[in-house]
Amino acid sequence: MKAHGAPGAQERFRRCNTMQWNKLGQLPNLGNCLIWQPMTPQDISNLIVRTSMKDRAAFDLLYRQTSAKLFGVCLRVLKDRGEAEEALQEVFVKIWTKADRFAVSELSPISWLVAIARNHAIDRIRARREPAAYIDAALDVADPAPGPEAAAVAGGESGRIYRCLDELEKDRAAAVRGAYLDGESYAELAARHGVPLNTMRTWLRRSLLKLRECLER
């Protein structure tokens, strides 16, 4: 065991120290150094690798840096705060025990973490006992407004996938988004869009193939 006090905090400030304080002394804008800089993907990768070696300080810092995103994923899929908290813990238990698998994945570190959280949250809603009640609840809370998505497009990061979604028919693009972001099943999507389940399956399969074609164009 090492670095009990505040490994996360000290690590961030140390970086700041070497970058600015030694050289510049005490300048007024050194306060910037205190702000938590978002970590780079390489930083997150390092933390995952160190977590796979059971480095608890790295795990704590990884949690601090990524739990808000992964909690956002669990909340959106599960639509229940208590259950999302429970799911978040299970997700980080998986990250702690399976971090070594990151080495063989070709995903970016944050995509790898989000995939664990999404898949876990989706497995959880599939395991729920009362699917009918769930569909009603999902319809009540589902947020069809494209707020965050639009913001993401504006940010440019995910512009490409949304341009490709735009090439699909409107309701099919909505079904793809609903499936991905909310983890809706074929059955739920079919009920929501008022089409037979197999029709929904055909829609989405064709949409996925078109999406891939567009993304690889």
């Binding site: 808000a68 995103k69 909690f71 909340l75 989000v114 999404r118």
Partner: peptide
Amino acid sequence: SPMADAYPETVP
């Protein structure tokens, strides 16, 4: 995965 940008961050 770019669609995941739409998940808002929520501090647990």
